[in-house]
Design a protein around this nucleic acid. Structure first.
Length: 729
DNA sequence: GTTCTAGAAC
DNA sequence: GTTCTAGAAC
């Protein structure tokens, strides 16, 4: 660190220009290009050339060779060069170091910033030269950092500068931009403050993040500040973090499912502008949270207030702790409800808005903030749903993908609620009638949580109702009357669901382990003749064409009706293994074989077309007999994709990622299955999650949607795609 | 799984 | 009128 402040340079012989080659090293989002730009802008005396792999190809992806050639010719002209590519490992850098002889001094500048910072920057940026932006970036950065090797002097550098924060970077910019044409910097290794292995600790945490409260008391408060200090600590006291990690690992079975859980962030209703008594309000919040929290499966509720010192947050926190409410499912959060993800790292797919009866923007407080952050799209979407709102009620508004709240924060719905008013300056004041006020406030929270529960159910979270429904229908097949009765009820339920109406009491509380659907032999339907084709292929591959690989364990074939540019099937050859529901622990090695065969094919396709993205997985309830793994590219560009079932079978929880199936079978001995009923859920873009009224409109949208994939898919290798453009060797 | 088609939705 | 879905048959 001390050396960083040493900007002293030693002048060489006058007039003799001494070009240097500075090899930058850093993940996407670490600021390499910005670094080069700033030095080049500030440097008045030394000519610099930036060799950037993202731009050198003139629109196409650049190659390392182009960079090498470009660098050599610039150096020959007496210019100094920046090698602006990731250069994360020694091998990547070696060709540049070897490029020129000892007459050119080689430097390395490593921008070794916290992984989560690089990721969040790459995820957010737009217009990146190498088109590495959006959600895709998170997984790319993650993978790239796994092979990070900080530069060492014995690779051939005269000088290495490691920057671990913005201050270090600024110092290095000053150092390089001050260099005259013949100046020479002191050689040596500068700037590294801790060992490189530890710095990366943050990476998986970022991707799997959330739940920072898990490390402390029952009901905790999280704020951007807390997360921030977490980040800073990461560098200085890894031990603290590691023990935290250990704690998380120890409770992995329960905590892991919460990280991507549907989450409702809500403000305290009526306590701000409507002057509702804080103590009474906090009682009601805790009472209602307690009533709902265990009915919501793994979904989470988060009470949000702007201020770290919020009275209502501390009251609620204390009372919730007293009631022993599970802090994974309910916690408080100090931060801006419109920036929970971008500023606080907290992903909430649904936020509540304490609105006014006219459902109009403005008025100050949360309502103004949410309408303003969501843009005009929210107002339009709200207007389409309702013209006004009475107190105690809630209205759910799906957020159009054009809204910044959607694209930036990942919020897919806003639930407007109107609480009781105790402020004489506002309409419908209750004149201090707290009997009435408390009743309405209770009703408001019930409406809010009911609406959220409906959303959770509509999204296909496991719930008992679905299972029971399915079981009943199938057991009752003999009796026409009861069959009809059940069907009628089901229609009624589905209808309720659509309208986000009341919440079914039986909604499954114990979600974690009992998500399997129809494993009972009794409830199993018979296979139709048409459903036997894959079975016959598995048993007698020689009778079939269209097979592209065959072994004792599996047969690989192109899907007869591909639902995307690339869509193939890895078929198990075990007799009696009809579907995912039949899979048990004994099939673990088969599952792994199927996965690796599928992965191999995905990688082959990627080598032919590096823009493809693949997903590998099983249908919870397949139409065709014989266990088969789908390997499907995520363009879904196919004329065979024609209906809702097609779409949702690959883009809802009905599609079970191979990696998750493997985890579940090894852990619980069976895979979690989703009911076929979820195939009728609304159509949503698999990238930006926007809703679309029908298949043609959805297809028109996905043909151009470049939004990042949801965080869930970017984790654990659920999506398979090529590493960053810098990383191509 | 697809195809066909009635009729709902626009 | 055209577009789109969903159910039945295969």
């Amino acid at each position: 660190m001390e050396a960083m402040d040493d900007h002293e340079t030693t002048s060489g012989g006058k007039d003799e220009a001494k070009p240097i080659m500075v090899i930058l090293m850093g993940a996407p989002g670490s600021g390499k290009s910005t670094f080069c730009d700033l030095v080049m802008r500030l440097s008045t005396r030394r000519p610099w050339v930036r060799i950037c792999q993202d731009t050198i190809g003139n629109g196409k992806a650049g190659t390392k060779n182009q960079c090498l050639t470009g660098a050599a010719s610039a150096l020959k002209e007496g210019k100094s060069v920046f090698i602006d590519r990731c250069n994360l490992d020694r091998e990547q850098r070696a060709d540049f170091v070897k490029l020129v002889g000892p007459e050119v001094e080689k430097h390395a500048v490593a921008l070794d910033l916290p992984a989560k910072l690089c990721i969040s920057r790459s995820v957010k940026r737009t217009g990146h030269e190498g088109n590495l932006q959006g959600g895709k970036a998170a997984a790319v950065v993650n993978r790239m950092l796994q092979k990070k090797e900080l530069p060492k002097l014995n690779e051939g550098y005269a000088r290495i500068t490691v920057c671990q924060d913005e201050k270090d970077i600024q110092a290095a910019i000053n150092t390089y931009s001050a260099l005259g044409p013949s100046d020479k910097l002191p050689p040596g290794f500068f700037g590294q403050k801790n060992s490189d292995a530890k710095v990366q600790l943050g990476i998986m945490k970022f991707l799997k993040k959330k739940d920072p409260p898990g490390c402390s008391d029952p009901v905790t408060n999280v704020s951007p500040e807390n997360i921030q200090s977490h980040t800073t600590k990461e560098k200085d006291s890894n031990q603290v973090l590691e023990s935290c990690e250990e704690l998380k690992k120890a409770s992995v079975g329960s905590s892991i499912s919460f990280e991507n859980a549907p989450t409702l962030a809500f403000p305290s209703i009526s306590t701000a502008d409507f002057h509702f008594n804080l103590d009474k309000a906090s009682d009601i919040i805790v009472e209602k949270v307690e009533e709902y929290v265990n009915k919501l499966g793994n979904a989470r509720l988060v009470l949000v207030d702007l201020s770290q010192n919020s009275k209502i947050l501390s009251l609620v926190r204390a009372k919730a702790a007293e009631m022993n409410i599970d802090s994974k499912k309910f916690f408080t959060f100090a931060g801006n409800i419109t920036k929970l993800y971008s500023e606080g790292g907290l992903h909430c797919n649904v936020i509540a808005n304490a609105t006014n009866w006219r459902l109009k923007p403005g008025g100050g407080g949360v309502n103004a903030a949410i309408f303003s952050a969501a843009g005009p799209a929210l107002e339009t979407a709200t207007k389409a749903r309702a013209g006004s709102l009475s107190s105690g009620k809630a209205v759910v508004v799906p957020l159009p993908s054009s809204s910044p709240l959607f694209s930036r924060e990942g919020v897919t719905r806003v639930i407007h609620v109107l609480g009781p008013n105790m402020n004489p300056q506002r309409p419908n004041c209750l004149n201090n009638d707290y009997d009435k006020g408390c009743k309405i406030l209770r009703e408001t929270y019930s409406s809010l949580f009911d609406a959220f529960a409906s959303i959770v159910r509509a999204q296909g979270e496991p719930c008992n109702f679905e299972k029971e429904f399915k079981g009943e229908v199938q057991l009752d097949q003999g009796s026409r009357n009861s069959d009809q009765k059940v069907k009628r009820e089901a229609v009624c339920e589905a209808d309720m669901n659509k309208k986000y109406k009341s919440f079914v009491k039986e909604l499954g509380p114990n979600v974690g382990s009992s998500g399997d659907g129809n494993t009972d032999g009794q409830t199993r339907k018979a296979w139709g003749g048409w459903a036997q084709a894959l079975y016959d292929t598995a048993m007698h591959p020689e009778r079939h064409k269209n097979i592209i690989e065959m072994s004792d364990d599996v047969v690989v074939l192109n899907d007869l009706y591909p639902k995307a540019q690339k869509h193939l099937i890895v078929l198990a050859r075990v007799e009696g293994l009809d579907r995912l529901a039949d899979v048990q622990k004994e099939h673990m090695s088969l599952l792994k074989t199927m996965h690796s065969v599928g992965l191999k094919w995905a990688e082959k396709f990627l080598s032919e077309n590096n823009s493809l993205i693949f997903r590998l997985g099983y249908h919870s309830v397949p139409s065709m007999r014989q266990l088969h793994l789908h390997v499907i590219s995520q363009d879904f560009d196919s004329n065979h994709l024609k209906n809702k079932k097609h779409w949702n079978s690959f883009n809802s929880p009905f599609f079970r990622d191979s990696v998750d199936v493997i985890d579940e079978v090894s852990q619980y001995g069976k895979a979690i299955l989703k009911d076929e009923n979820i195939l009728s859920m609304e159509l949503r873009c698999h990238r930006c999650q926007s809703a679309h009224p029908n298949i043609p409109r959805l297809k028109a949208h996905i043909s151009s949607c470049q939004a990042s994939f949801p965080a869930f898919l970017l984790q654990n290798g659920r999506l398979v795609f090529l590493e960053g453009i810098d990383a191509n060797h």
